[in-house]
């Protein structure tokens, strides 16, 4: 028996919005420590890794490890039927071929359940090695989304250059070029508005704007985003999900041939 309950459907709606741009379908691996999902996008350029810890749910029970392959478009149709303040419960029997989403209104007067067929997905799991990154940037998630959106008008690629003074985002193309520099915050009044840089050595890397823009669909989940970079290895874009886990995106850099 698997059962996981969240007191507000908003979190699950936001999590789904954060991944469905990149993934059509994905396997939710459930065990007694929580729910994990790892999947590459169709073109195998980026990797999505989601962790929802058991202790972050209002109720969590998973008697046997369970892998639930879901069509995220179908899941989105179901989640659309939930009000933000509904309680949402996911339920499945052991070895089930369906999962049930149950929504309960706050006053308990409306209860809906939606049963969705599960899929057998043949997904490759990748081992991500522990890495000491040359630069780690923490910045407001809204600011990062704005920069990706603005600069993607000027080119397909975004260059991120990080030094201890700050981080510079650049794009260029037919129109011309655009640069946005963010200085490291000197005095932190509001932590969520700070730009913090931990630098071992400076890094300049180039990434496809299209994927960065997809990652920023996770912005409603949290105030701050963390970018971890080292030369010629994938960028990690991490959004923490308060009290329950995180979604991480790994993006392969563009490299000169």
């Amino acid at each position: 028996m698997f059962e996981a309950r969240l007191s507000s459907a908003t979190t699950l709606k936001k999590v789904l919005d954060a991944i469905k741009d990149l993934l059509n379908e994905a396997t939710f691996d459930c065990n007694d420590s929580g729910i994990q999902l790892q999947a590459m996008d169709n073109s195998h350029v980026s990797l999505v890794s989601l962790t929802l810890r058991a202790d972050g749910f209002d109720k969590y029970r998973c008697d046997r490890n369970l892998s639930m392959g879901m069509n995220l478009g179908s899941m989105a149709k179901i989640m659309k039927c939930a009000n933000n303040d509904d309680t949402v419960t996911m339920k499945a029997q052991d070895n089930a071929d369906t999962v049930v989403f149950m929504f309960e209104s706050q006053n308990q007067e409306k209860v809906s359940d939606y049963e969705m067929k599960l899929m057998n997905l043949d997904q490759e799991h990748l081992g991500i090695p522990e890495t000491d990154y040359a630069c780690i940037v923490r910045m407001p998630a809204m600011e990062f989304a704005r920069i990706c959106r603005d600069l993607s008008q000027f080119g397909e690629s975004l260059v991120i250059c990080c030094t201890k003074e700050g981080v510079k985002f650049s794009a260029s193309g037919d129109v011309g070029s655009a640069n946005i520099k963010l200085a490291q915050t000197t005095s932190v009044d509001k932590e969520e508005e700070a730009v913090i840089i931990e630098m071992q050595e400076p890094v300049t890397l180039t990434f496809a704007c299209r994927y960065l823009n997809s990652f920023t669909k996770a912005t409603p989940l949290t105030n701050q985003v963390q970018l971890s970079m080292s030369m010629d290895v994938p960028l990690v874009v991490e959004y923490r999900i308060q009290d329950i886990g995180h979604v991480r995106y790994y993006l392969a850099p563009k490299i000169e041939d």
């Binding site: 195998h44 490759e124 799991h125 090695p129």
Partner: peptide, 14 residues
């Protein structure tokens, strides 16, 4: 033009 790498080339298949 820089070439786009495949994410799989950086991580090991489990």
């Amino acid at each position: 033009e820089n070439s786009q790498k495949n994410i799989r080339t950086f991580f090991l298949s489990k």
